[in-house]
Design a protein around this nucleic acid. Structure first.
Length: 537
RNA sequence: GCGGGUGUAGCUUAAUGGUAAAGCUCCAGCCUUCCAAGCUGGCUAUGAGGGUUCGAUUCCCUUCACCCGCUCCA
């Protein structure tokens, strides 16, 4: 999966992220902290743009979705109801021989003869190891095979190959999960790995004040379903969306920011009617592009998959690096009817950006039962009462930011007039999400008229977009700097602009340089903001 | 959590049991009429802690972080 080329590619991207101020290690001056990352000036802009685009497409651009901004810490009862207190706490065991880790609840129970040992004595050095150990053999297997496994175990602790095993005894056991089915070796005691971050609310740090940092933003939406329904005057089908931080105490954060312990989610819960109370479907008329009142969960699910894919394309992710993964039935969570993952082909392999789950009405039903408050909805149209079902598109902001950077990263061979070849690094962001939209340069910085005019143009554009101003170094160098941070447009003020060039008819015009083609066109200052706004929206 | 690898300036690399060097980047100045030009000057580093030693970036121990494989990822 990860070959040396893709590792090198990833290293270049990580290096650029740091060098140009997209992403830093959290707490770097103290040596960092595993699984946490900070966004520098450009990364912060990039993330804002992603979230703004998502929010706009989800709620501002539609009538049937409203927003929510809930707290990170909620009543622990929320997590009891959702099942997270249980399911986010997996007991894990390690094989004492192979060191592999397993989920204790996924071990097949076995029966057979267990051989116990108190320790081992090295016949050569006389050294004793008094660590108890045991091996499970299927009935009928010769005990010598257990001794061989035990010698391997003690061998890893410093005993020689023909060490003497101490205190062997055997016992019949049934339906045990304490032994590795692959090699018969004893496991470590099961240890809980709780993926939720725990904290305490209030001054007393006791069991009664325990609270959790949310492991997903979705539950807040379910918990506030009734309130939002009441005030928004929405009718099912409708959605509630939210952007916010979530926390998971991952066993092993990996792949730069891809799996972090603190991350940001963009989630929509789209509430729909259960299939059994749907209004009668009208005769098909061919085109059903806009949502229809008679749609069942499958149509809504497909609708959101299509919507989300279109959105990713709208912010410039290449469609050919996106793929859909329909989770097979055996992989589905118990509450899900169908889940589609949208994967992006990162240098380290195809990985999930977003999951679109048809969750039935599991969550609202759980809160309905645990809180004792009704989550039912009365549908005027069909005169029926039900707990709405839900379609959940859930995306990771940080993963998307990383995908956008990977997708935009481009190295090109550029040959100059003198035939010298160099590598140009550019982040080819879609103008919608580029941290800086346009950079303004005076051609030369020791000519006050050029500098003054450039600052004027910068001030002209500033109310409409993120503008950079740069006068340091040769003009080519300034272009390359902007290429590397993904600025789509550069505007240069030259002598023609101020009417001191050869062609005085060019007064009041500037050159507009395109990042990807490196081509320049001459445009008037008057048109500039209008022209750019069209390109960046 | 296990195994392997790596840690010297923002980046890439050098060197040494005894003053840590260079190129690029960055900053300032000069110069420069459109794609990393030139000149001058400047900032910045041995991941952290401990040990051995007169003296440790170098040797030893611990720890932290990153990368790879396993594991995990309702």
């Amino acid at each position: 999966m990860a070959n040396s080329k893709s590792i090198e590619q990833m290293e270049k991207i990580v290096s650029l992220c740091k060098r140009r101020g997209f992403i830093f290690q959290s707490s770097e001056i103290y040596g960092g902290i595993n699984g946490f990352w900070d966004y520098g000036p450009l990364g912060a802009e990039l993330k804002r743009n992603i979230k703004d685009q998502w929010w706009r497409s989800m709620t501002s651009d539609r009538d049937d979705v409203v927003g929510l901004d809930a707290t990170i810490i909620m009543s622990p009862k929320v997590w009891e109801a959702s099942g997270h207190t249980k399911t986010f706490s997996d007991p894990m065991v390690d094989c004492l021989l192979s060191k592999k880790r397993y989920r204790a609840d996924q071990i097949e129970p076995q029966s057979g003869i267990a051989y116990f040992y108190d320790g081992a004595k090295d016949t050569e050095s006389g050294k004793t190891i008094d660590e108890p150990y045991s091996v499970l053999l299927p009935a009928g297997k010769p005990p010598e095979s257990a001794r061989k496994t035990a010698r391997q175990f003690y061998g890893m602790r410093g005993a020689s190959e023909n060490a003497e095993l101490l205190g062997e005894r055997s016992e019949k056991v049934e339906n045990t999960t304490r032994y590795n089915p692959e090699n018969g070796s004893l496991f470590t005691e099961p240890r809980p790995f709780n993926l939720m971050f725990k904290t305490f609310v209030g001054p007393l740090q006791d069991e009664n004040s325990v609270a959790y940092l949310r492991p997903e933003t979705a539950q807040a939406i379910f918990a506030q379903f009734k309130n939002v329904l009441e005030v928004s005057r929405q009718k099912v089908p409708f959605g509630i969306c939210q952007i916010g931080k979530a926390f998971r105490n991952e066993v092993n954060p990996r792949n730069f920011t891809f799996r972090s312990r603190e991350f940001e989610q963009m989630e929509l819960e789209f509430f729909i009617k259960p299939d059994d109370v749907l209004p009668e479907a009208p005769a098909e008329t061919g085109e059903v592009a806009p949502p229809q009142p008679h749609w069942g969960w499958e149509k809504w699910h497909q609708y959101w998959v299509d919507q989300r894919l279109a959105w990713y394309e709208s912010i410039g992710l290449s469609r050919e690096r996106l793929e859909l993964y329909w989770q097979p039935e055996e992989e589905l969570a118990h509450y899900a009817r169908a889940t589609v993952d949208i994967l992006y082909q990162f240098p380290f392999g195809p990985q999930e950006l977003e999951g679109i789950a048809a969750r039935g009405n599991f969550d609202l039903t759980q809160h309905h039962e645990h809180s004792g408050k009704s989550m039912e909805y009365f549908d005027e149209e069909t005169k029926s009462k039900f707990i709405p079902h839900v379609i959940e598109p859930s995306a990771g902001v940080d993963r998307l930011a990383l995908a956008l950077i990977c997708d935009a990263y481009a190295e090109e061979e550029v040959t100059d007039d003198k035939g010298k070849t160099e590598t140009r690094v550019a982040l080819k962001f879609h103008p919608r999400i580029a941290p800086i939209k346009v950079a303004v340069f005076p051609l030369l910085k020791n000519k006050p008229e050029l500098v003054a005019k450039a600052k004027e143009v910068q001030a002209l554009l500033r109310p409409w977009m993120n503008v950079a101003y740069d006068e340091a170094g040769a003009i080519g160098r300034r272009y390359r700097r902007q290429d590397e941070i993904g600025t789509p447009f550069c505007v240069t003020i030259d002598f023609d602009t101020i009417g001191k060039g050869e062609d005085t008819s060019l007064e009041g015009t500037v050159t507009l340089r395109d990042r990807d083609s490196m081509k320049q066109e001459r445009v008037s200052i008057e048109e500039l903001s209008h022209l750019l706004l069209k390109k960046i929206r």
